[in-house]
Design a protein around this nucleic acid. Structure first.
Lengths: 134, 134
DNA sequence: GTAAACCTTGGAGTGGACTCCAAGGTCAAG
DNA sequence: CTTGACCTTGGAGTCCACTCCAAGGTTTAC
């Protein structure tokens, strides 16, 4: 009935090492142990791990996900807190998209340059050209 | 006449530790030393460091910048190589922008949800909702 | 009975670009 | 002559989310 660490890992799509790591970091509760000391998980744990992975894909850090889970485990709804984290993350994403967009523009201009391998065109010239174009 | 490590660092806008680090990584030549063993840089080095920082801002890794500088130091024009790196980097940026954009869409939807702190709305509900919206 | 396939633990290693530290040497000013 | 600001080196620490390992114990299959 009870799931072993690698079964949980396989169901959640992560490694057994990762499951133990999440436990060590406090994202998963310490499960009961078999007489031999093996971890015995109940069937809800893979769900919890998939939540962790989902939140991670949204760009949240393990520490942040841990906070959310902690609030949740205390019986409260962490949605307000989640919203704060999500909004902060959206702001970060917007900043990052802006940064990457202007970077892309700069690089695309650089790539277009006629910078054939003749004597005077060199790396510094490329870079000087790039600077001009900003 | 010769510049000391912290003067170079200050002119280039980096730390003295970073200058020594670049030397160790092969991005800067080992400069001549004073009788006491102090590094003595010529005036072109801050320019080289600013180039490194510029290339870094474009998202190139130190190892890649090192390759470029090595070609350059051998007297060849690294522009062809640069172009390859730049084009690869543009592709990475495009992929990253796409990823962030769809992430943003998902998160924005999540943030809009009426997920007030009543009994049944919890983290898992938020997440289930998020999954539906993809 | 033995081999394969699990499980346990603690601890080290990864990448990237540094930063910080200790323990000592050097140099100019007052 | 001492204070303080520089310089040298090697090596450790940072962040993040793991992964990999060794050295052992357990369980399962044949």
């Amino acid at each position: 009935m009870a799931l072993r660490v690698s079964e949980v890992a396989q169901q959640a799509g992560v490694s057994a090492d990762a499951v133990r790591f999440y436990e060590k970091e406090g994202l998963l509760p310490s499960p009961p142990r078999s007489p031999a000391g093996y971890r015995e998980y109940d069937a809800t744990i893979p769900h919890r791990i998939r939540f962790i992975k989902g939140a991670q894909e949204m760009g949240l850090k393990l520490a942040e996900i841990g906070e959310l889970l902690e609030i949740q485990d205390r019986g409260a709804c962490p949605c307000g807190h989640t919203k704060t984290l999500v909004e902060r993350r959206i702001a970060e994403i917007d900043a990052e998209i802006d940064r990457l967009s202007s970077l892309r523009t700069g690089l695309a201009g650089l790539a277009e340059l006629e910078c054939s391998a003749t004597t005077e065109s060199d790396l510094w010239a490329c870079e000087a050209e790039f600077r001009k174009r900003r």
